[in-house]
Design a protein around this nucleic acid. Structure first.
Lengths: 108, 108
DNA sequence: TTGACATGAAACCAAATGGTGTTATATTAA
DNA sequence: TTAATATAACACCATTTGGTTTCATGTCAA
């Protein structure tokens, strides 16, 4: 049961995991495929992939002896939404800027 | 030296810190003020605030013996931008929808 | 000046994290 | 059948993390 974006935020906190995610967004890859792109062992990569899966940022399907890891964009929505709450603040700033510009326009 | 959104992602990984951030987005608060809202010691809250400050998600100004913590929306831009990279995946989905709608419009 | 208050800083602790290497199991290919 | 391959599952390790308590310092108020 996912009670919010916690697992996704957790998964995104590590730079290696964020890079794995970008890789997987381009194409599905086996664990060994992913590991080949990084300077750590398969074991370490496997752990990262498990954490990404917990955060529902990827899904895993078996194909013979391989596990194919597939990027799942939907989980990023929860994160994006959480951050979206704060949009009001820079919107306000932009509104302030717009007001200043408009005032200046009035004087010309 | 901030080399990207790493410190911000790190800061956002903890749920208490995310809640502190929402509090501070509503109003500036001293450490004791923030601590009063959570079930942990001032010390723990102070550490969270330090990490938020490292991630540039808040700024701190001294006011007598108090330190006033102030939400800084800009740092969330880097995070938002990183996630924005993946918008293409939703966009593709939306584009498919738009195409369908446009096709339907042409027929009318 | 003196006591109360807000914070900073340090020492300490248990648990989580990111990493390793080893071993077992399942699957493929010869 | 057998050897090689891909992964899972452990056990282990050092460091980080989130928390605590204690003590020192700076500031306000009487």
């Amino acid at each position: 049961m996912n009670v919010g974006p916690q697992d996704a935020f957790r998964a995104l906190a590590d730079p290696t995991r964020r890079n794995i995610l970008m890789l997987l967004s381009a194409e599905d890859m086996s664990i060994a495929d992913v590991a080949a792109k990084f300077d750590v062992t398969r074991s370490a990569v496997k752990k990262h992939l498990s954490i990404l899966e917990e955060g529902k940022l990827i899904s895993v399907r078996a194909s013979g002896r391989e596990r194919i890891n597939h990027f799942e964009p939907d989980a990023l929505r929860a994160v994006s939404d959480w951050i979206g709450f704060f949009d009001q603040f820079w919107d306000e700033r932009l509104a302030g800027l717009k007001r200043a510009i408009d005032n200046n326009k009035d004087k010309s």
